[in-house]
Computed example of a mutant assay.
Amino acid sequence: MTPPERVAEALRGLGLADSVRVFARSTATAAEAAEAVGCEPGQIVKTLLFVADGRPTMVLVAGDRQVDTAQLAAILGVGRKRLKMGSAEEVRAYTGYEVGGVAPVGWPTRVDVVVDASLRRFARVWAAAGATNAVFGVATEELVAAIGGQWADIAREPV
């Protein structure tokens, strides 16, 4: 099973519509994905892996924002120095996906999920679907509810 097929299966398992789209071009960055699907960059969900004191945490942030690691560390109850971005190897190990194609669904093990509150600006968002050229669209609130996400103010606007 390909990673996008695994994402489609995970979406169906969560009761979400399978809306995986595979492109001939890259959708690995928020700008590339937004151009491919014809939406605002903020509607692209960046799915990031952070490790807080050895505990993996999935972080979903709007494509036009950056994670404020101090705020995230406080929410996770660790000092800022105890929070780090997952390495490419950790991302593969925890998610089963390569960097640039990490989907917020279909992970081999359940982890904590923190979701950037600025994503609530959008009724519908797009997220990576397991490959650097695949995405899926979904209602924002439905995705967050299905994956057990916790809403939080964890992002800052770009300068």
Rank of each mutant, 00 (worst) to 15 (best):
A134K: 04
G148L: 11
K84C: 13
P4L: 08
D153P: 03
F122L: 13
V20T: 04
E32F: 02
V115K: 12
G38L: 05
T47M: 13
T95S: 14
T132M: 11
V59F: 03
V105I: 12
I75E: 08
A31M: 10
D68S: 14
T95V: 11
A52I: 00
E35C: 06
E89Q: 14
W151Q: 12
M1K: 12
V51F: 03
A36V: 04
L119N: 04
R121F: 05
E40G: 08
V113T: 13
W126D: 06
L11M: 06
T95A: 13
P104Y: 09
A31K: 12
F23W: 08
A62S: 15
V102I: 10
G96P: 02
R124D: 13
R12I: 12
R12N: 12
A127V: 00
L119G: 02
V135N: 02
K81C: 07
A62N: 04
L119H: 06
A127T: 01
K46A: 05
K84A: 15
Y97W: 03
I44M: 15
D153T: 13
L143R: 03
W151I: 12
Q150W: 05
I75V: 11
N133G: 11
G137F: 05
A155H: 00
L60Q: 06
Y94Q: 15
Y94E: 15
W151V: 12
A10G: 06
A70T: 07
V67F: 02
V115I: 15
T69D: 13
A128M: 09
E157L: 15
F23Y: 14
E9M: 09
A117L: 13
Y94V: 15
V102R: 00
A139N: 12
G77T: 04
E142N: 09
A155L: 10
A31W: 06
G106Y: 01
R80T: 06
E40W: 00
A33Q: 06
D112Y: 02
R120Q: 14
W126G: 05
A103F: 03
G101R: 07
S19P: 08
G106K: 04
